[in-house]
Amino acid sequence: MSAHSGTAELPGLGTTLARGGGGPAPVRIVVAYGFWIFLLSDIIMFSALFASYAVLSGQTNGGPSGHDLFELRHVGIETLCLLFSSYTCGLGLLAVARRRMSGFYLCFALTFALGATFLGLELSEFVGLVARGAGPSRSAFLSAFFSLVGLHGLHVTAGLLWLSFMVAQIAVRGPRDFVRRRLLCFSLFWHALDIIWVALLTLVYLMGAR
């Protein structure tokens, strides 16, 4: 490795030299690694709720089951919102890397709009369920449903707040390295929420609605 790395522009510098004798890894790599550990711990917290949902999903206590409650068209639109918001978030990061700031603002405005649409759809679903008497206190199934889907919704809310802060930081501080590292962490968070949503969509909605 180090013999090969000596052929780069200057020994000891740059991302290709980050292992072994090449000196410390770039801050970007270290920061992303630390944030990735946080994301994994977050996913482990979700896994506990997934486990409780999987155990309790049949315990409807005579109340409505997922088959009676879930509207897949609604859920499909939510999924599309999240997928496209992940895409625009990634495009926003690319725009910052190329110093195209108007492109960044456009992409992140779209990301925010799609995330907010997702949140609005989810809230309207929750309100509709509670109005139908299928609130979280109705059955163990619905308690597990609301805590699992609600926690994901809370994460999306936190993500939207974070997104707003990041846009403000870019506007005030410019695309400096430390701001871009925070932006990278935000994008990791936003993409990880998508992964959790895929599991949620499959286990809760698609399997529950059958």
Binding site: A8, E9, L10, L13, G22, G23, R176, D177, R180
Partner: peptide, 17 residues
Amino acid sequence: AGESTAADKAPGTDDGS
């Protein structure tokens, strides 16, 4: 900020990639 070459950077700083 991110357009300088790798030679301008101390080890561990971002290379903008």
